[in-house]
């Protein structure tokens, strides 16, 4: 059995998808040292072709990508357009990890439905889709804020190494509730008065000397 993880982030090597993949692999390798895992990136001209090759040569493939405009990024869609339908007797396993900046899962369940249908369209075996929100900013968060997230990805990797599939329990933990509770919404509104939810954006706007221009409308008609 060969496993491949294809990273569909347009940020490539700098992506949050890569960080999550590394934690998944740490867990995976702690349980399975024999099986080689191929890692491929869609970003870059040659990498796209390489990813297609890796896809066709692997019996299990996990595609990880960030949510872009409520769906997969254009380069992931382009990759999908090039994937061959199942022809072999044994069906390839295909699973997905969708991560996004939005805290709630509701944003990603629509593309999840697409991914399931797409896998069936090609005649592959659908392993499911792991959804994780609140991922934007993990590269600058203090370790205390990402500890649980990374631990869950390591556990998922361990489970996958032992079972060849995603754990439904860990999947549910990572996904969290579809929407914020009423109490959380009130909390969010109060936090909004202090500017806390936009701290990450303001911090970066200021760092780049662009805070005063943050509301610019360069394409508005005169």
């Amino acid at each position: 059995m060969t496993l491949a993880i294809i990273n569909g982030s347009p940020r490539g090597q700098q992506s949050n998808s890569k960080i999550l993949t590394e934690h998944f692999l740490t867990g995976y390798r702690s349980q399975n040292t024999l099986r080689n895992v191929e890692i491929a990136y869609l970003k870059g001209k040659d990498q796209f072709q390489e990813s297609l090759k890796v896809f066709s040569q692997s019996e299990q493939v996990i595609i990880i990508f960030p949510l872009y405009t409520d769906c997969m990024p254009a380069m992931v869609k382009e990759f999908f357009e090039h994937l061959p339908p199942n022809t072999g007797e044994k069906k390839k396993d295909l699973g997905f990890i969708v991560q996004s900046g939005f805290p709630e899962a509701i944003h990603s369940v629509y593309v999840e439905r697409y991914l399931k249908k797409f896998t069936q369209r090609l005649g592959y075996n659908y392993l499911g889709t792991v959804i994780k929100g609140g991922v934007e900013g993990i590269q600058v968060m203090p370790a205390s804020m990402t500890r649980k997230l990374f631990a869950n990805f390591r556990s998922m990797g361990e489970y996958f190494a032992l079972n060849g599939s995603f754990s439904e329990t860990i999947k549910a933990k990572l996904q969290g509730p579809l929407r914020m509770s009423k109490a959380q919404q009130v909390g969010f509104k109060i936090a909004g008065l202090t500017g806390l939810p936009n701290f990450y954006w303001n911090n970066n706007l200021k760092k780049h000397g662009a805070y005063q221009r943050r509301n610019d409308k360069p394409f508005a008609a005169e």
């Binding site: 990024p73 939005f102 805290p103 936009n198 954006w201």
Partner: peptide
């Protein structure tokens, strides 16, 4: 789905919205 060609410009349209998050219909 719609073509990757269309999705390419669609992904770029985020230039037209603001990074700040607000609640719309109880969602971010």
């Amino acid at each position: 789905f719609t073509s990757s060609l269309l999705k390419r410009i669609q992904d770029r349209l985020i230039v037209l919205i603001h990074p700040y998050i607000e609640l719309v219909q109880g969602e971010c």
